[in-house]
Amino acid sequence: MENNKDFVLKVSNLSVRLKDQTILDNVSFELKRGTTLAILGPNGAGKTMLFRTLLNIVPYTGNIEWAEKTKIGYVPQNIAVDEIPISVREFLSFGNHVDVETSLSPVRLDNKNMADKTLSYLSGGELRRVLIAWALADNPNVLLFDEPTTGVDLGSEEPIFVTLKELKEKQKMTLLLITHDIHIVNEYSDYLLALNRCVTFFGESKEIMKPSVQKIIYGEPVCIGALNEER
């Protein structure tokens, strides 16, 4: 990795086995600094497990090599806040020494009352943006983002996409996005990793528009109508 400053992550022969079940099998890929990788695959394909291994939470075999001075921010798919009386301000201060109002600004939640709202009362879109603000508070240079639009209604997706675009284009941040959304893959990512326990496709994201690639990923090409509906 020291000899190649372009790369921020190299994963080789990564496997995860839990209770005699293979969750990830011999996964290998590389990621260039400042690029966005979309990770696509059916439910149970091991996408979130891949993030857990990249965060060093679960035991694995193989090799994960992050470039020096890599600082990772993480936005999980789900968090359990329904039963916890905690304000946005308190949540953002966990593990971070930040000015709360300033940290809400990049995710466009800078109205005055937001910081004192209870986390469990936020809409899906607001909660996702608070999670992004939390992940960004530490000034990471890599962001792992599990399902950017899960639980977010259509009207609330836009600010999340704008934030992603700014992180990518203005801050040159390296992004890894788990998604089911072809629109996100096509619009916001440079590379695509299709996963189904093992890697079924790795290449440039624009390739996803090719029927031959769709056949590899989905078993059959995605109809144009379905793609338009997703948009």
């Binding site: 965060l55 999980p76 806040v81 905690i86 593990g95």
Partner: peptide
């Protein structure tokens, strides 16, 4: 705070070195 963070999400807590 660390306990509450780990309740909210174990992954988040681990990502902060908890």
């Amino acid at each position: 705070k660390k306990l509450v963070l780990s309740m909210i999400s174990e992954e988040l807590a681990v990502s902060k070195g908890v």
